[in-house]
Design a protein around this nucleic acid. Sequence first.
RNA 1: GCGUUCGUAGCUCAACUGGAUAGAGCGCCUGACUUCGGAUCAGGAGGUUGAGGGUUCAAAUCCUUCCGGGCGCACCA
Length: 574
Amino acid sequence: MNIFEIYLKKINLVLSKNKEKLGLKDFNNYKNITIETPPSDFDFDLSCNAALVLAKLNKINPTLLSKKIKDLLLSNLKDFKEIEIAGPGFLNIRFSNEALISNINSIIENRNSFGAKKTNKSFNIEFVSANPTGPMHVGHCRGAIYGDVLSNLLKFNGNSVTKEYYINDYGKQIQGFVKSVFLRIRELKYGEKFIQKDDLYPGAYIIDIAKNIIKKNKNVKYENFEESFEALKKESLNFSMDLIKSDLNNLGIKHDKFFSETKIVENKLVEKSISHLKKKKYVVEGYLEPPKGEKDKNWKKIKRLIFKSTKFGDDTDRAMQKNDGSWTYFANDVAYHLDKINRNYDCLINILGADHTGYIKRISAAVKALSENKVELQCKVCQLVKLFKKGKPFKMSKRAGEFISVQDLLNEVDKDSIRFMLLNRSNDVEIDFDFDKILEKSKDNPVYYVQYSFARISSLFRSLNLDLNDKVVLKKDKFKLNDFEIKILRKIFEWPKIIEISSSKFEPHRIPYYLYELATLFHSYWSKGNQDPKYKFIKDGKIKNIETYIIITLVAIVVQRGMNILGVSLPERM
RNA sequence: GCGUUCGUAGCUCAACUGGAUAGAGCGCCUGACUUCGGAUCAGGAGGUUGAGGGUUCAAAUCCUUCCGGGCGCACCA
């Protein structure tokens, strides 16, 4: 139930029925008409720009038109008690008591789904997909939490969502990773000193993995790397994926499906997708242009299979084969996306870090080519988290063994703070993340402010012996809200709109902002009671009146829904 | 050089995707608890929305030219 939508429809209907009366010829473009909450210094429930939009289209005076529309709406819609014309022709509207009561009751009736915008589609969200060469570092957190919340949000709207993790367990990095494990095993078993080289991972976790593998395979000698490779790869990957899964779990994230790149190669999915694309002439044998950036002496002009991604808006065609003829990472990824397409989702979502922005055009092109434009692929980019240590920029590298892990972070700050902090901003701005300041900052993390509002309500209900889930129905004709309650109610009315924008734009950062604002209104009301007893919620040991009871219940409902979507806990006591 | 993205208060960020006097937090200043939880509240100072031009009733938002930062630019993943 989104009252802005409901009343927009009602108003549009009245206007179109009376267009001659209003002197409107052009009424086609009324989609620009919007309903919003007026700025807070206006004491009205709704604000509509109909007169401004229509006056422009029909070249008539907006003030005159707004007066006509005002009279028309008041005589046709009994939900409206009062309309005032403001500024250049905005219509500021106040609800009748009957309308307020019925709007409130319908929220209470649908409390579990209040705000949901039912769309019933099926989504696949691929996110995190960190290389399985070690535990997660803090840079992965943002995309991980963003993807998780996006998934919660889409589910709240009645969609089915598969959260998927693509395991990059194929290629050079894995070779280096497995080799590192192998050398650590040799070190532990035979005392051969581990010597750091470029392609090796020095991190201490490799030693743990090596120890575990030795324990499990007491009789294996690990003499020859090539011979040990397959078995060792499998075991090492299991250990590092366990590390990653436990990190994710500690952040409150659980994927539904893990998809292995190695399987793509083993099951010849690349060949399948390429023959698919060859038939349509989207993959052909040919030559690539030299790279346009810095000149590289190693570049060679070689005949290979290329994907004609320029046909779908990419800047250049893309290699499917490396110089040695093996498949590129991209070729594997194309095959992976064909697999996802064949699983019949309405929409695929990829969540990427900013360092992969340049990849979007080619993979979008691939999905268009593979699905004949029928499957939607949304690539959402999370800007990087810029790390600082003691005020200085800090560059992380798993290969250098220099990084801050998710676990390091979780040892200092709780999951709820991390989630709220990272969600509390649009994903296309960079975040400065100073590890040394994070503790002191986390003390005034807004998450506590929102949680505290709920704890206060819980405490209030406890002392009154009321249950938040009790059903309250408004029947009174005399229905009077005080200033604080009316402000809160108007905020509550906005909730469905926040959900709609957040989910249609994939921008969940609006939710924490909204919840903070709602909590502010509530805290303000609460504190007023300390100053002026007539604003206290409790009178003679009972809730003051039904209006107050309802408003507080509504706050609790929305805070619960919101925090649920954010994946943040909501304790009854703090 | 090309692509992409950002630039809003001292700092970190919002702004319902074109709406009204651009809003919050932190920091700074002044105030408020013997009983519904002070992890709170009330108030103050702080702005040429990077710069110029354009589109219109209306621009932080759209177009354009600059300036500045991030990320990417064969084969790696």
